[in-house]
Amino acid sequence: MTDHFHWLIRTLHWLMAIAVFAMLCIGAAMVSSVAGSHSWLTGLHRPLGMLILLLALLRLAVRLMTRQPGLPPDMPRLQQRAAQASHILLYSLMIVLPLVGWATLSAGGYPLILAGEVQLPPLLEKSNTLYALLRPAHRWLAYALLLLILAHLAAALFHALIRQDGVLQSMLPGRAKK
């Protein structure tokens, strides 16, 4: 059970854990503040969000091409199912949320500038109906991701402190045994 995730998965997991959580805070801060930070937070939100989209796709590819350590066999079936479902949801949201952000800007008729001269084309036509759907969707999906991450963190700590079953280790640095 001291098997590890592929090193690239582990590296991406921790980099992205920080980036995704930062994005949640950046998003919440920029829409609720009129201070000068609003400008640079907005300037950071878009490129960092698009980077997360890219890394999530890369991570998913590595995930599908490598062998996973697998959950402890003595874990109750329901918990195993919940763990798997939550991981699928985490992956989905890391991909869907940036896409919805991009689509929101497109529907609102805003240019999506990543940096300097780099502008991405719109994902869809300018549309009031879609903007009215996508703008709140981006918010509620972000809130769902936040709750999921908190539960995920609590579960990881549960494995580490209560079950002590090596699940947290599987995501930590170290050489794979066997």
């Binding site: 959580f21 801060a29 700590l157 209560i162």
Partner: peptide, 18 residues
């Protein structure tokens, strides 16, 4: 300890959101 460590990021988010 688990509860505290989980509440920490929740608080950080609440602070960011004002």
């Amino acid at each position: 300890l688990i509860a505290l460590l989980t509440a920490l990021p929740a608080l950080l988010f609440a602070w960011s959101a004002g």
